[in-house]
Design a protein around this nucleic acid. Structure first.
Lengths: 84, 84, 84, 84
DNA sequence: GTGGTCTAGACCACT
DNA sequence: GTGGTCTAGACCACA
């Protein structure tokens, strides 16, 4: 899955969906670090602010935990949304 | 085909699809100029910025080439996307 | 109350607090429109993105309702946070 | 005044003294931003950590106020040290 | 006019 | 190196 600039869905929504799917699929394991913001910025060819907005959405949903100076991590599975 | 203001798809996406189809159909031949931005603006009854965004998308896909001060042209067929 | 650039509190938090207080005080009445984003931008001398972040926070708390193309409004009092 | 690499006085002490003198002299006005850390780094040819240590000293003395994400500012004159 | 999205860049604290 | 904040500007749909 990838970002589609022609898709009217906001890019940050698309990115959040991609990362969410990877977490569900186990590509990113609980308590393990996610790629850094700048890595995602490069991988998907979008601005850092867009990456940050996607990450904030995931954190608010309970999928991830963000720590200043260290990075974002997959949340422990207990705190995942129940409709997952 | 025409622009549908009630369709939630962004207008520039709709316009890009229309132009793309015309190129595929041969209505606009390779290396020939496309209608000017202001012509499209009138033909479809949309804002010039919308036209520009559609043209930019087509150029990024490889369908068109934009030359400052002269206009946009249908790209040589070799550079068209392969999934076309 | 006003924005203090020397206060380490993020500007958007300061702005949200100001607007929240004005709503509580009745300066902005329920169902009435708030100043536009550009008006706040000028009144407080901050960037529009900062204004938007403050407005989003207030909307998430239930103080305001934002409608694209029309503006932000004070929410009906029933939906205000209970700890207010 | 300038940094003297041969002076046994720590570089951050020297730098802090320079900035402190500029504030007293009015070269940097109250509530106005100081040069960024990277600017000082270049102007004086020293490491960024050295700049940060000097700035921290000035902030602790009450000469400056540092705000995350925004920069360092000259403190309001009321909060300056009295033995100045 | 309004708010919504995205970009690019700067600067900071923290590890 | 990481994430956190702020700025400035562009462009869009919407009303």
């Amino acid at each position: 899955m990838t970002i589609d600039q022609l898709d009217p869905t906001p890019l940050w929504v698309q990115l959040a969906a991609i990362i969410r799917d990877r977490i569900k699929a186990g590509d990113y394991a609980p308590r393990q670090p996610l790629p850094s913001e700048s890595q995602m910025q490069q991988e998907f060819g979008i601005a850092r602010g867009t990456v940050r907005r996607a990450m904030r959405a995931l954190a608010e949903e309970g999928w991830t935990v963000t720590v200043q100076g260290r990075g974002s991590f997959v949340a422990p599975q207990e705190s995942w949304p129940k409709d997952a």
